[in-house]
């Protein structure tokens, strides 16, 4: 279980760094979506099913939808 948690945390940190580095904002949004999704799994491993449910529904679905709409309405590439 600890190994799984370690791999997940590493993936999460890598996604967060990717979200910081991407010039294409759509890619950055998807990377931040992955951060939220992995955070939801970690909440489940930490025995917090209520929070995992909220984070999965909001962090991975609603926030990503809002960001995608916003990127579509503004510029896609960071200059």
């Amino acid at each position: 279980m600890e190994i799984i948690a370690g791999i997940l945390v590493l993936l999460m940190i890598a996604s967060a760094i990717a979200a910081a580095l991407f010039k294409d904002l759509m890619n950055a949004v998807i990377a931040s979506c992955i951060v939220s999704l992995i955070a939801a799994v970690l909440f489940y491993l930490l025995q917090a099913p209520d929070v995992a449910m909220a984070e999965a529904a909001i962090g991975a679905a609603l926030v990503t939808g809002i960001f995608v709409i916003a990127v579509k309405r503004t510029k896609r590439f960071e200059e």
Binding site: M53, A54, A57, A61
Partner: peptide, 14 residues
């Protein structure tokens, strides 16, 4: 069970 108004409301909105 795990769940409630905040989580269910978010699922409905999604």
């Amino acid at each position: 069970t795990p769940g409630g108004g905040f989580q269910g409301g978010a699922v409905v909105a999604s």
